[in-house]
Amino acid sequence: MNYSFDFQSVTRNFGPLLDGLVVTLQLTAAANLIGLTLGFVVALMVMSRWAVVRWPATMFVEFFRCTPALVQIVWFFYCVPMLFNVFLGSVTMGILALGMNLTAFNAEAYRASIQAVPREQIDAGIALGLNPLQRILYIVLPNAFRASVPVLLTNGIGIFQQSALVAIVAVQDLMYQGKTLATQTYRPIETFTIVALIYFAVSFPVGQLVGYLERRRAGLAG
């Protein structure tokens, strides 16, 4: 192979990649905010005794878990304006698509954790006179959140990586800026290598944190 690597052609134009990383982090933060809050609500709906509440929530979870994230992003970007006459910016559409996807996966994490909450704690809340909403807020939610933190972090970093898909609808995230820079410099190998390293640099510490939390939880359980 006679290819001559030239990473300086990329590092000299590093500014756009940093701008793209900022957009990617904004997408990730907003999607996680949606996923962490709505995920718990959807989990409660999935576990509802009323079918009229349970079935729509279950279908929501299954739809977003069983269809590709790329299809969801494209659907939000092109179909929502046509069907509902709602015109939002591409970044907002990307946040909604990623947030709904993450909500579905977090709902399953919350559901498993809610089912693991000891019945004795709920009975204690009843004995103390807490109403159902108070029991959810002060007993179920804290316990379920602590138990599901490793999975929620894993899902969160997964959505950070999947956010690269929004480049297909012209959101100027890290992947979009990488594609643009690769075209301008004619250095796709160097450009996408650096883009991959940036994704790795953000994802790896979170992955290590997840591993630490899981080991710590296993140690406490033991």
Rank of each mutant, 00 (worst) to 15 (best):
A43K: 00
T58W: 12
T185V: 03
D6R: 05
T154H: 07
W75P: 01
F77Y: 12
A221Q: 14
L98E: 04
A29K: 11
N131V: 09
V52I: 15
A218L: 14
R65P: 03
A147G: 15
A104Q: 01
V22S: 14
Y212E: 10
Q172G: 08
A30C: 14
N101L: 04
V117R: 05
I122P: 01
V202T: 05
G158V: 02
G39N: 07
Y138P: 01
A104M: 04
Q72S: 09
I95P: 00
L18S: 13
L141E: 00
R187F: 05
S9R: 09
V169S: 01
N13I: 11
Q26W: 08
N13K: 09
L153G: 04
Q177D: 05
P150D: 06
F84H: 10
S203Y: 01
L220P: 07
G35V: 08
G211V: 04
D123K: 14
V171F: 05
L36A: 02
V169H: 00
M100P: 00
N32G: 03
L21H: 04
A112D: 07
N2A: 14
A124N: 08
G89Q: 10
Y212Q: 13
A116W: 12
G35I: 08
P118A: 09
I122R: 06
N101M: 05
C66H: 13
V206C: 11
F160P: 01
Q208P: 07
F192E: 03
A182K: 04
F200C: 11
P81E: 12
Y176S: 00
Y176W: 14
V61D: 01
G35R: 02
L181K: 03
S203Q: 05
V195G: 00
A127R: 08
L130F: 12
S9A: 15
R187P: 01
F84Q: 09
Y78W: 13
S9I: 12
R111G: 03
R135G: 06
D123C: 12
A109I: 02
F87A: 13
A57Y: 06
F204T: 10
G89I: 10
A29I: 14
I114G: 03
T183N: 12
G39L: 08
Q26I: 13
I73W: 02
M47S: 13
R146N: 12
G158T: 05
Q8M: 15
A107V: 06
L98V: 03
Y199G: 02
L165F: 08
T58E: 10
Q161H: 09
P16K: 05
V52G: 04
I189A: 12
Q115Y: 00
R216D: 11
I136M: 10
A218C: 09
I159C: 02
V91N: 12
L197G: 06
V117L: 10
Y78A: 12
R54E: 13
T37A: 14
A69R: 06
L152C: 09
I34Q: 00
L44T: 05
A170F: 09
L174V: 08
Q121L: 13
I159P: 00
P68I: 02
N131K: 14
V206F: 03
Y212C: 07
N32Q: 05
